[in-house]
Simulated scan of single mutants.
Amino acid sequence: MSNILLKVDGLKKSFFIPDGMFGKKKMLKAVHDVSFMIPEGKTFSLVGESGCGKSTTGRLISRLIEPSEGEVWIDGEDVSRKKESQLKAMRKKVQMIFQDPYASLNPRMKVRDIVGEPLAIHTKLSRAERYKQVAEILEVVGLNEYHANRYAHEFSGGQRQRIGIARALIMKPRLIIADEPVSALDVSIQAQILNLLKDLQSEFHLTYLFISHDLSVVEHISNYIGVMYLGTIVESGPKEAIFSNPKHPYTKALLSSIPIPDPKLRRERIILQGDLPSPVNPPSGCRFHTRCPAAMGICKVKEPSVYRDPATGHVTACHLVES
Rank of each mutant, 00 (worst) to 15 (best):
S2C: 08
N3A: 13
N3V: 08
L5I: 15
D9Q: 14
G10N: 11
K12V: 15
F16M: 15
K24G: 02
L28V: 15
L28G: 05
K29A: 12
V31S: 06
V31H: 03
S35V: 10
M37D: 14
G41H: 02
L46E: 12
G53Y: 08
L60M: 12
S62H: 01
S62P: 00
S68E: 04
G70N: 00
V72R: 02
W73A: 05
S80A: 15
A89G: 12
K93E: 14
F98S: 10
F98T: 11
Y102H: 07
G116I: 07
K124T: 08
L125C: 02
R127T: 15
A128P: 00
A135E: 13
N144P: 00
H147N: 14
G157A: 11
A166Q: 05
A168C: 09
L169V: 12
M171T: 09
K172S: 15
P173W: 04
I177E: 13
D179T: 07
D179V: 04
A184C: 10
Q190V: 09
Q190W: 03
L197R: 01
D199W: 07
L200Q: 06
L200K: 06
Q201A: 11
F204N: 03
H205V: 11
I211T: 08
I221N: 06
Y229Q: 10
E240I: 13
I242V: 15
A253M: 06
L254N: 07
S256L: 07
D262T: 09
P263L: 04
E268F: 00
G274F: 03
D275R: 13
V280A: 14
V280H: 02
S284D: 07
S284F: 05
R287T: 12
T290Y: 00
T290K: 02
M296D: 01
G297K: 14
K300M: 10
P310N: 08
T312M: 05
T312P: 01
G313Y: 01
